[in-house]
Design a protein around this nucleic acid. Structure first.
Lengths: 223, 223
DNA sequence: TGTACATCAGTGAACGCGCGTTCACTGATGTAC
DNA sequence: TGTACATCAGTGAACGCGCGTTCACTGATGTAC
């Protein structure tokens, strides 16, 4: 159904939902996800608390929606970067692009990053469609994975037989799977420590550390 | 002042403080740090809520104490492993030991790990003595850093002039600083994703992924 | 074009809950002579 | 060894707050004939 086919009421609903989420993000940006309050959002919108229950079944549904949007946003950023990189004919894929996108995305809204990759919310379980976006992310990553720079390792034997997460890439060599995983874990390591402020008093530039890790992954510029 | 010099009252105080912290950890283990409640702890100990204010000025002081203990516990685990490894004469240092210790420590109590390295508590700032323990951690790591396995990188030029965090090791070569940092960020990357459950549906063994990263760092067993 | 009806957004009151924290007080424990 | 006093652990009542959520209701907006 296209937008023009929606009734005015339906359009209005969507609009209010978006505004609720917008205020929710502002609140999260200020004090983290644990402080997210439906009543506070309503007050900020000039509405009474119970009014929000016209738009979200409960607090959990709102949070789930935010998490979904966050994943979607990151996936779209990856995809956009990948397709813009591919434009000129046979330009071979590489991981430097996604790496740059990831860092920009994370720094743009640290709390959004932590909502996805931070301390898990106790008792929360992501619905299947969110898991699907997460694996879409890995898929884009595998697309961008070229010739691995790392020496081979026994772990690749494990990956050769444990590749359930890469069913979209049945032909990808284990070395590529390993590289995609390393991209993921290493960059996440730098980013989460940086965003949590663990480099604060150390007097080094996190951007350069990040870049060094990217280069180590892609076999980019050395000394 | 040794324990035997303390008055019975003082000893009792310490004991109750410890019990409060113990219950606090149990509560954190169950529902995370954000759910930590003084009243709930008091009830669990068979006391009234206000009684705890004899032992902690407020909730924040308790959390600070928990964070301090967590850092201390990890630092001690590192030191113990390092000294036991050094026993037999000239056994050269390596990072595999600390890596193993780190993983065991993290898995033993994921919420304790996240209290330190997870989503930062909004508005919380660690007091200086905790920062000191954190840099003690880096120091132990630098002690264990031997010949780097990675090829040199321009980032080491940056580290050569930005080494405020390694004042305890003025003679350490930049390559060693870089290796210690990589140890830190890469293992943290794997661990935090693992503990947050991001590998859950992927069907791979996080322990092997971790080991592969350790080997990549130390130049250990390849294919 | 006008009327009758259905839909639905939003309100205000209320429920029950738990939180951190303060305060005045009781009673037990330790200390000094 | 016994008495007088100071210290301090713990209680119960209270304050003020905000939370998620339900419910019966009002009033505006859309729909059908």
């Amino acid at each position: 159904m296209t937008d023009s086919m929606k009734s005015p009421r339906e359009r209005y609903r969507q609009q209010v939902r978006e505004e609720v989420k917008e205020k929710a993000w502002q609140q999260i940006a200020g004090s983290g996800a644990s402080a997210l309050s439906l009543n506070a959002i309503a007050k900020q919108m000039g509405m009474s608390g119970p009014a929000l229950y016209r738009y979200f079944a409960n607090r959990d549904e709102l949070i789930t929606e935010l998490i979904r949007d966050a994943y979607r946003s990151l996936a779209d950023a990856f995809i956009a970067a990948a397709s813009s990189g591919d434009e000129g004919s046979g330009r071979r894929p590489d991981l430097a692009g996604p790496a740059h996108v990831l860092r920009r995305w994370a720094l743009a809204d640290p709390h959004r990053y932590f909502l996805i990759y931070g301390t898990p919310v106790p008792g929360y379980h992501a619905p299947p469609d969110i898991t699907a976006i997460a694996s879409e992310l890995m898929s884009v990553l595998l697309d961008a994975t070229a010739a691995p720079a790392a020496p081979p390792h026994a772990f690749e034997d494990h990956l050769a037989t444990h590749r359930a997460w890469a069913t979209n890439h049945p032909e990808a060599p284990p070395a590529a799977l390993r590289q995609a995983l390393a991209f993921w874990t290493r960059l996440h390591g730098v980013l989460s420590l940086e965003l949590a402020g663990h480099f604060a008093g150390m007097g080094l530039d996190p951007a350069l550390l990040y870049q060094a890790e990217v280069d180590a992954l892609t076999g980019g510029p050395a000394a």
